[in-house]
Design a binder for these strands. Structure first.
Length: 817
RNA sequence: GCGGUCAUGGCGGAAUUGGCAGACGCGCUAGAUUCAGGUUCUAGUCCGGGCAACCGGGUGGAGGUUCAAGUCCUCUUGACCGCACCA
């Protein structure tokens, strides 16, 4: 007997050994000149929080690394980088809470994250590590902002924006979830501020249309599409009685119902409200506006949908039939959407109907369902609500048209009179891009009294974030930078005169909107990246991360990529060809988080079971896209498998058996099965394939295992368990890394058998199993089935009314009862 | 309210897309080894009946299409996700 200790799977020594070798040989460096086809596999880079990694974070990183190594073995030059999304609220709030300068706490957190990430043994090329908070990086984030400014895509506007009273900063619409701050959960208020905005709405149509070209989960595409919220309709202008020079502009998706507009509603914040309200109504209107402002965003939108409102005393003229219609204000009309004003058609809109009932306003039917001749009246004497299709009525000149025809013709007729125009409206708003916080990229704009706002020229970038003692948010609507004279006071790049710097910073999402471009050329100090390198590596072939960024990062990154494309930097205009959202890991049914106290620490798991075992369990725990409940027993199962596999290999590695057909057949079948499962990304079942294979090899091991089998195991296991793969490969006598090897292919010939066992069914129930030639035709298969003695008793004396053979699977005989 | 996803043993989950339901792992039962225990190995394990061969039932529920349904269709129950007065 050989030394027993060599048979045991000593994962700790083994893993340390290979990690040292990989480090020493810079095994994970990308070779730009290999001549191999490229593959870009990217993780959503983390913001380095103080909490460190748990086994849930491991899952996505493991999936992407297994995939990267698989692609490498398939002959691709794989770019698999990692970096830090280090600017922004999470990092800054953590720093404030700890009382440590964000630069310092961020550096500490990065060091800790990097140590923990190293445990995964992913093939990250750390030579390409990037950090969005370093001047070498954010110089270029600022550069792209100046380019947007020059193109009119970055502009300043005074408007009420979302404000988080706890984080003391303005927020983008995308950062407000259910009326609360996405970061801290505090209820968001409105604040009138002069803001930097990015004109993402100019790209709305492209962002929507190009979704079709992406290999992304349908769910994420639906979310982005809903967020963009394109709707076609018309602008219509209404004259106001006794008010000259002003018209009310509304947006409607149902211009066909214009004749049924019996009143109008303005949002309480609408600028015309004060102008048109009559003296008699002034008190009630002002009272209602005050009430509305008191209501928070939540109660206005979610909790209470009862219709309230106030009459302004003013009347508008319906341009279609010249009727006087009252103008109301109500909080069910939102200033943020469309024009902040609507024409109300109570007969054909649920909300308008409720409002009309509540305030006893007239309801006029203008769309009648197909096949109905007479008007219908409810018990309360009102026409019923009808939102579906039908034909126009009570619309002189348009009666009898369908809804679709009506939309076209009414708009055409009104447009001819200059009171309407077909148009498209989006739900998506422009991107509020300024934050009144310290820890972000300073917005590179200089205000000159003579020349106006000027972009900081490229040769003066980066505008460095000053190193200061006090970085607490002020809450006044000004950034902490505003108090730093030496930062604020500067000279105008155009006229050289005294000028002031913009003191707001960029949001957390700025740096991550183009980081995937920097990885291809991370040390370039002349350009954000080399266009040649970008066009060589991008778009990203596989982007892996959580679904929580569906309408934040993923939308912003697409927008930036399109802008950068339009600036002439790249040929592509979509960054991520294939997106994969991994499911989260739960414990006791809920997402792991430090605050819930249900985190499983990967450091402990690595210590007890090893890196390879934890990697494999992260996949084996369930389908990669589904949420999965953590179960340490499952980890033990995988660990046992690795021990068995290791033992099986080590028993045979020094004197492999000669090749034989039974092993060759098993091997090709395993490879076929593994191939199928890898290509369909069913990584949990790929692990099962290994278990099935080694179980089958266990039965063969009495006669020894051949070298081809052992090499196959080494190569195919290595994406999952890279240390074990390398070890086996080396023990087989190879001097180069297993990752220099080629993923083995299978031969269809070995998948075939001379005979095959099929089921014989009577009326769809399995009654026997028979062995037949695999190339048997229908006739002979059915003959064999009938000849079977178990089947004989089932068909004896009965009429067979149908018989069929599904090749290689089953025979079904249908008999009359 | 609108849109979407899903439901399979004691548990996590398989099922080449309409063709033998329950692969693989966990857990459990029995035995062997070691023995202080764990480890390791062998066999069994959807439910009911039977010593057994075998028989009957079975993929949330009710119908339907089909020679054949976890898979397709209709209705229904429950869970989860996204959006939510978007004109």
């Amino acid at each position: 007997m050989r030394c027993l200790w060599r048979m045991e799977y000593q994962f700790r020594q083994l893993e340390e050994k290979w990690q040292r070798r990989w480090d020493a040989s810079s095994a994970h460096r990308v070779n730009e000149n290999s001549g191999k086809p490229k593959y870009y596999c990217l993780d959503m880079f983390p913001y380095p929080s103080g909490n460190g990694l748990h086994v849930g974070h491991w899952r996505g990183y493991t999936i992407s690394d297994v995939w990267s190594r698989y692609k490498k073995l398939q002959g691709y030059e794989v770019l698999h980088p990692m970096g830090w999304d280090a600017f922004g609220l999470p990092a800054e709030n953590y720093a404030l809470q700890q009382g440590v300068h964000p630069a310092k706490s961020t550096a500490q957190n990065i060091a800790n994250f990097k140590r923990q990430l190293a445990d995964i043994s992913a093939m990250y090329d750390w030579e390409r590590e990037i950090n969005t908070s370093e001047p070498e990086y954010y110089k270029w984030t600022q550069y792209f902002f100046t380019k947007m400014f020059e193109r009119g895509l970055a502009y300043r506007k005074k408007m009420p924006i979302n404000w988080c009273p706890s984080c003391k900063t303005g927020l983008a619409n995308e950062e407000v979830v259910d009326g609360c701050c996405d970061r801290c959960g505090t209820e968001v208020t409105k604040k009138e501020m002069n803001q930097w905005m990015l004109k993402i709405t100019a790209y709305a149509d492209r962002l929507l249309q190009d979704l079709d070209t992406l290999d992304w989960p349908e769910k994420v595409k639906r979310m982005q599409s809903a967020w963009i919220g394109r709707s076609e309709g018309a602008k219509i202008w209404f004259e106001i009685e006794n008010v000259e020079g002003e018209r009310i502009e509304v947006f409607s998706t149902r211009p066909d119902t214009l004749f049924g507009a019996t009143y109008m509603v303005l949002a309480p914040e609408h600028p015309l409200v004060a102008r048109i309200t009559t003296d008699a109504c002034k008190l009630a209107v002002e009272d209602y506006i005050a009430q509305t402002l008191k209501k928070s965003a939540i109660s206005r939108q979610i909790v209470d949908k009862t219709k309230t409102g106030a009459f302004t005393g003013a009347y508008a003229i319906n341009p279609a039939n010249k009727k006087r219609i009252p103008i109301w204000i109500a909080d069910y009309v939102l200033m943020d959407y469309g024009t902040g004003a609507i024409m109300a058609v109570p007969a054909h809109d649920e909300r308008d109907y409720e409002f009309a009932v509540a305030f006893d306003l007239p309801i006029v039917e203008v769309i009648r369902p197909e096949g109905q001749d007479e008007p219908i009246t409810n018990e309360d004497g009102r026409p019923p609500l009808h939102v579906g299709p039908g034909r126009l009525v009570n619309s002189p000149g348009f009666d009898g048209l369908t809804v679709e025809e009506g939309k076209r013709e009414v708009v055409a007729a009104m447009a001819a009179q200059g009171v309407a125009e077909a148009t498209v409206t989006y739900r998506m708003r422009d991107w509020v891009f300024a934050r009144q916080r310290y820890w972000g990229e300073p917005i590179p704009i200089i205000y000159c009294d003579d020349c106006g706002p000027q972009a900081v020229p490229e040769d003066q970038l980066p505008v460095r974030l000053p190193d200061v003692e006090s970085y607490q948010p002020t809450g006044t609507g000004e950034s902490p930078l505003a108090a730093i004279e030496s930062f604020v006071n500067t000279t105008c790049p155009k006229c050289g005169g005294p000028a002031r710097r913009e003191t707001d910073t960029m949001p957390q999402w700025a740096g991550s909107s183009w980081y995937f471009l920097r990885y291809v050329d991370p040390h370039n100090n002349k350009q954000p990246f080399s266009p040649e390198a970008a066009d060589r590596w991008l778009p990203v072939d596989m982007y892996i991360g959580g679904v929580e960024h569906a309408v934040l990062h993923l939308l912003y990154a697409r927008f930036f990529t399109k802008v950068i494309h339009d600036l002439g930097w790249t040929r592509f205009d979509e960054p991520f060809q294939h997106l994969f959202n991994q499911g989260m890991v739960t414990l006791n049914g809920s997402k792991m988080s430090k605050s819930k106290g249900n985190v499983v620490n990967p450091d402990d798991m690595v210590r007890d079971f090893g890196v390879d075992a934890l990697r494999m369990y992260e996949l084996f725990v369930g389908p990669p896209e589904d949420d999965a409940e953590w179960n340490s027993n499952g980890l033990e199962g995988v660990s046992r498998f690795l021990s068995r596999a290791y033992r099986l290999v080590m028993q045979n590695v020094d004197s492999p058996a000669p090749n034989r057909d039974s092993l060759e057949r098993l091997r090709h079948r395993f490879l076929a099965s593994l191939h199928e499962r890898m290509e369909t990304f069913r990584l949990n079942t790929a692990i099962s394939a290994f278990m099935e294979y080694t179980n089958a090899l266990g039965a063969e091991s009495a006669n020894g295992i051949d070298k081809a089998t052992l090499e196959t195991l080494a190569i195919t296991l290595s994406p999952f368990a890279p240390h074990l793969g390398e070890e086996i490969w080396e023990r087989l006598g190879h001097r180069t890394s297993v990752f220099e090897a080629t993923w083995p292919t299978y031969d269809e010939e070995w998948l075939k058998d001379d005979t095959v066992e099929i089921a014989v069914q009577i009326n769809g129930r399995v009654r026997a199993r028979i062995e037949i030639a695999s190339d048997a035709n229908d006739e002979s298969a059915i003959r064999s089935a009938k000849a079977n003695e178990d089947i004989a008793s089932w068909i004896e004396g009965k009429d067979i009314i149908k018989e069929l053979y599904v090749p290689g699977r089953l025979v079904n005989l249908v008999v009359r009862q």
